[in-house]
Design a protein around this nucleic acid. Sequence first.
DNA 1: CTGTTAGCGCCTTCAG
DNA 2: CTGAAGGCGCTAACAG
Lengths: 359, 359
Amino acid sequence: MGTTIRDVAFEAGVSTATVSRVLAVYERETAERARPVAEKTRLRVMAAIQRLGYRVNYTARGLKTQSTMAVGVVFPELANDFFMDVAEGIERELDSQGYTMILASSLNSIEEEKKRIYMLADRMVDGMVVIPAGSRGEHLQGLADTGMPMVLVDRLVEGAALDAVTSDNEDGTFRLTRALLADGFRRIAFVGGEITLSAARERLSGYGRALAEAGINPDPSWICLGGMEVEDGYKRMKTLLKKGNPPEAMVAVNLMVHLGMERCLLDMKGNGSRGQESRLTEPVIAGFDESRYTPFLPACRYTASQDAVGMGSRAGRRIVDKIRQKKSGKEETTGERIIRLPVTIVNSTNGGKHGGKSL
Amino acid sequence: MGTTIRDVAFEAGVSTATVSRVLAVYERETAERARPVAEKTRLRVMAAIQRLGYRVNYTARGLKTQSTMAVGVVFPELANDFFMDVAEGIERELDSQGYTMILASSLNSIEEEKKRIYMLADRMVDGMVVIPAGSRGEHLQGLADTGMPMVLVDRLVEGAALDAVTSDNEDGTFRLTRALLADGFRRIAFVGGEITLSAARERLSGYGRALAEAGINPDPSWICLGGMEVEDGYKRMKTLLKKGNPPEAMVAVNLMVHLGMERCLLDMKGNGSRGQESRLTEPVIAGFDESRYTPFLPACRYTASQDAVGMGSRAGRRIVDKIRQKKSGKEETTGERIIRLPVTIVNSTNGGKHGGKSL
DNA sequence: CTGTTAGCGCCTTCAG
DNA sequence: CTGAAGGCGCTAACAG
């Protein structure tokens, strides 16, 4: 294969051990415990490395050091704006710390998720960041129990006490709903949400609290649970509009559901004539998640913007910390630690992160 | 660490070599050359593996076999619908073949791209799939020359003769423009496009050919090159609208630019009153790329839909083929092979892939 | 059919 | 400050 440390040693007229030491000086992680090397030999070795174009073999190093400087990241799906913003945040953070991200998708299946985390463990990743596919986390906890550093993002799970970074979901829908109330709406529905997912539950709860605070007792039919995808939003919206006295406003559990709802509205007012106003009273939507597309969603009035990239870098920093702690032998802090990042409510009539103003 | 092959060997009362052979039977890649093992011992070993919860260590195996069963994927950015659809396609294909995807972002920088491909090489990935960040590919070719299997996606580059899978870009804008012509538009602009990127060049070319066919000589100011991002579309559109006699229709080089253009239109007609028609003659847009958001873009009339997931799985299959060929010693076919997938023109007035009809 | 024996490329005591 | 030697976990001849 490529040139090895032996080639370099030969070229520089030293032993492989010396080359290894020279290398150690250049790694942030090992620089402190690096043994001294005479400046003269160091230079000689460096020159040889240059000349031969030597590059370390991480596989070999990993086998020896039991550390691959890679962290596994498992997300429910890739084609999702929110997840990918999180991924960007993670990758940048990891990269700046000398770690590599290995990204895998669990295809929204808890079974696949299990396979993926084990597969990553087989590849000896030093740690793992996961957005759980479901609500149960025994398999995650199980792997963590073997000593694998792990941090969750976005969703919390039952059956596991793991570190996590997520948003203040409850507060998000609380403020979203309150904004709608302030605008004079009274008949406000909540659409979408897999009630097994913690984030969805929290969002429903915030909605409920805002209504309670306003002394409004929501009609049970206003709460249209089920699903986190585009089709789910579409279906729920359709059902809502068929009602005799439909809600005037609604809170969407996430961007996908929100999209489906808007799609439904579009179809309702006769396809093709998108510019033309219909006779129907147009409901107003306040949705979780903000993206560059929200300014184009006609019914959208408010969005709760999560700092996805920020969540990612937070998670990245956290996992690297845990890995370092583990390496340095400290058995680390006690129990789980959950970081909740605040969300920003955006009046998207004026744009949003991509052009609007915050409240 | 975890249990090793030695533990299993001891537990089953056999040698490590035998365990290794039993393992080989279960890998698709090695099953054929796997040496026979007596059914009785095989069962005994399997039982031991179960009992101990043994899992192979890919790092160790990789060091020995010079193959990690991982392929590196380098994309210009992660938070991009088109790229992520491609990634999904790649991952599924790789996974079904027993390979793991390692995804990295080049942050739209050719320098970063270079770092990333070498870093992946250091990790001994068996092959690489990249969407180039720029127009030059010496560094890619350089790595390929060392024997690293490589396939490009979406964009071709100068300075390299590599396999690639891309779309029929020229045909896409050709048909897009022709559809606009058929609708009676004559003053048609082309917006966006980093002329250094092959895909952008090809798209411009298709536009030109359609106009030529119709005997139209485009005003030079209709061709607004520069940039592939949202802001670029915004700026170009603004400039266009300021002209005395602006075009009635435009072709957008990609979804990002398209978005920026729509954004600009939105801002033009006085913010806040999105439902209300303006006095201004509304231009019509035909854009490359289709997504679940295009139905919401008011000016969008046609889109050229690329089969992003399909491109991904094609690329995945291709890279696995190349890897296998390399492993089996065959020095492979001659020169570069470029696969061009057809695009579908969608009348997005009626929805698109996410609800519309193809032409 | 199975065991023994060498390493893959690197790091790391332990001597010098 | 540097070299020699052993081994991380696994596979692949080569014997038996």
